[in-house]
Design a protein around this nucleic acid. Structure first.
Lengths: 198, 198
DNA sequence: ACAGGCATGATACGGGTGTACCAGGAGAAG
DNA sequence: CTTCTCCTGGTACACCCGTATCATGCCTGT
């Protein structure tokens, strides 16, 4: 049997339509019909590739995660010193450019969904932050052993705090209380404090 | 003309039913009918007191804000030294006890709503954080002038960062990645760092 | 060439949503 | 006692949702 059309390509096209809607209008506006219209296909097709809506939501979330990871690897790739890696990890999540604003907004759209859901979706979204925190802590420890961070600092706790702060800063930017630039400035200030050796 | 029933009391009763649902099942489950059932009144009554759903949502949000403010004033009231005030401000937002978990969860339920909304609701929710940040900065400045914080610190930026961090920590607790206790420990660690004098 | 199955389109179904409408009860004012 | 206004209940309307069903096209392996 041969595939007339590229299945994966179709799935991608539809899932990205979902993400586009989630970004611009929020997930509550992302009905099956709306996604179909946005993707330029029939409603039946959306049902065909993702049997249920939950399936579509899950698949799109996985793609969003992949996009974020790709972006992060791109940012980290340009970094050399440990501190630059740390800055890359944290600032690439901040909604400073169009891409990160889109990703952050879409993640925020999912946020409420995963809260009221004890099911798999919660587990799906709870893993990335944990491994990210571990990675960040490892980088901080490296910087600490290189003497760029005070040896008395608890880098694990610092990593958790920084990640939470970036998350909160992102929310404030999305809420319109702050500029992306301002958020970045606040982050840089705290990194300066952390990387201060006595 | 006399009021057969206390209007304000009825409004409160209905609005709190909405908040209860938003807390336990999320705002998307808070239909007019569900709110009516939860409050033990007829659907028509909900319509009568809050003509439209947006009105109900707005009123309930205002009440939630008042609850949070009351809680904060209660916590601040027990504080004496400037550092205790700072700790009170920040930790009272963290979902550590039942009340704050309820408030935080309900706020989170509103979060997505205000994002996809350019209208009044966004303005309604954007003000409190700003004044809170100003207040926190003022407390930090006081502590700084009292010599408890290094004079070279930028307390304004520190306040913004701390608030964002608490916000992010709250999200992580709600997401189930962390315990309320752990979040509090992370916050305390960073406060210790901030209040370290050379 | 032709049969089989994958891919797609149109439409139906049951349910839930916010809001609007109509009717009646109860108390105060005349 | 009547009348009028405030309050409350029941119910209808139009719409949108996710999913299921039926029908048909078209490619492909033999």
């Amino acid at each position: 049997m041969t595939v007339k059309v590229d299945h994966e390509e179709r799935r991608r096209q539809i899932a990205e339509a979902l993400l586009r809607i989630a970004d611009t209008e929020g997930l509550q506006s992302a009905s099956m019909r709306a996604v179909a219209a946005e993707a330029g296909v029939s409603l039946r097709l959306v049902q065909y590739y993702f049997t249920t809506k939950e399936g579509l939501l899950l698949d799109a979330l996985a793609r969003l995660g992949a996009q974020l990871q790709a972006r992060m690897e791109r940012w980290i790739g340009e970094a050399r010193a440990p501190r630059e890696v740390v800055t890359a990890i944290l600032s690439c999540i901040l909604p400073t450019d169009a891409e990160s604003r889109r990703i952050t907004r879409t993640y925020a759209a999912y946020y409420t969904l995963v809260l009221g859901d004890t099911a798999v979706l919660a587990k799906q979204a709870a893993q990335p932050p944990a491994v990210l925190e571990g990675f960040l802590a490892k980088q901080l420890r490296a910087a600490q052993e290189a003497g760029r961070i005070d040896a008395r600092r608890d880098v694990g706790t610092a990593a958790a705090g920084l990640l939470a702060m970036v998350n909160g800063l992102g929310s404030s930017v999305l809420g319109g209380q702050r500029d992306g630039e301002e958020a970045l400035a606040i982050l840089t200030y705290h990194l300066d404090e952390l990387f201060r050796t006595p």
